[in-house]
Amino acid sequence: MRESEKLKVVTKYELLKQLRRKRLYLVLALAIAVELLVLVLLPALGQSYPNDVMEMAVLLSIGPSFAVIGAIFFAGDAIAGEFEGKTGYTLFPNPVRRTTIVVGKYLACILAMGLILFITYACVSVSLLAIYHQIPLEVAESLALCLLLASSVLGITFFFSSISKGVMGATVMTLIIFFVVSGVLESVLMLAGQPRWFLLSYAGNVVTTVYGGYGAFPGGAGHIPTAALELPEIGTSIWVMVAYLVVFFSLSIWITKRREMI
């Protein structure tokens, strides 16, 4: 049996596991709830929707971006869970390479993540169509960039999952690195007038800045006019996200191959 066929088997059952978990539906429900909140809260507070469809798209895209963060919660146990939960005693003594197992788990996470993103972006599109009678092409662009950001964040989560003893450690470490460390570095570098293009959190801003002169990111304060601020370049940001994905995911494979079921 070829390794590619084993990869299909791993991906199929890892995806089935993800689809059976309540947390996936919780993340999806929260992401949609955030979008609904934007749609309901503005009229409820006596405010009309923005005149510019792009500005509204930014507001609604907080939901999908939020879903990316949720991904950390269901990828944190991808590798660490096999060791902590002892399921590795059943999975690893099989004629399958560890690389195949890690790649299969990653693909399953991406597919589950993609499902959430497609649904939340569909909600964004339907809302824009209902209010503005149009869906800007940038929504598709934002979706593609959000998928790439999710892939990078999952790569980092897999790295921490491969080095952590427990699931909680992997999840918390990713959240701290992504939000606290990267966020603090971004603020310090901005104040010092230094470039920030290499930070994933900064590069991830393209998910919303792709709509034009507005930027919103789940880690920040939400809707921030960024006309006066430096916006991340899409091309550079794509390369940065790809680099994080390749480096951290490769490291997670390398470490998992050497990790022992002690």
Partner: peptide, 18 residues
């Protein structure tokens, strides 16, 4: 241990597939 979200049939299909 086994994955709690899967049934014995699914677990054995997974391992048999591998």
């Amino acid at each position: 241990e086994f994955y709690p979200f899967l049934t014995p049939e699914e677990t054995l299909s997974y391992l048999g597939g591998l």
